[in-house]
Amino acid sequence: MTDHEDTPAVYADATAMTGSGEAMIELEHVDKFFGSFRALGDVNLKVSSQEVVVVIGPSGSGKSTMIRCINRLEEHDAGRIVVDGTELSNDIRNITEVRRETGMVFQSFNLFPHLSVLDNITLAPRKVRKMPKAKAEELGMELLTLVKIPEQAGKYPGQLSGGQQQRVAIARSLAMKPKVMLFDEPTSALDPEMIGEVLDTMKELAASGMTMIVVTHEMGFAREVADRVVFMADGQIVEVGTPEHFFDDPQEERTKLFLSQIL
């Protein structure tokens, strides 16, 4: 970490990585507009391999937009986004390449309701990676065991609880063996008693060395699991730091205000 006393821009922090040091995701001067509304303004962030970055901030601050730009669910208007050496451009091959290496977990799960749990997981490996059916199902069962619901394989998403659905969604993303996992408020739509089971799964994933960017309001998770915490407001990265630094000794007024509101 650089010294905050003489840091004119917080971006110095944002681009200084923890973890292995090898850059997995790079955002450089990324802008994103919705009409005339600037959703992201000059966002710079480097995430290294095996690093866990938690993004927090008030609603409308651009957290979700930022991670949705990383797998091109949103198109950025300016700047560069590089994922594992592939720069996102309008070339559909680059986009597909990045999406294959990037898993995403949504707030509202977005499981495919017309497919069984196992088919939800095996569809992409079979169709995109051309994995034989038997092998894909073996992998699917392994992943379901990993998220602790192998007995639900034959059911349909509608028959599962929210927490179970979100764990299936995590398994579905992992089936493509991604190098990066993006989590877009994965616990915000869950009943309180189910949040724990999903966070536990994510903790295990982090411990296994997965590179993760997590947008969340779960401060306990951020403190416990994050290598770095990114605070965003009004489409900009305001402050970046280790959890200890961030929660115990925030530098920016905006950060202090936000933390005082939620803690």
Partner: peptide
């Protein structure tokens, strides 16, 4: 909309 987004996110081609 989330269905299409999830389909994109797992890497399916537009036709798929």
């Amino acid at each position: 909309r989330g269905q299409l987004e999830a389909a994109k996110a797992v890497g399916l081609s537009p036709v798929r």
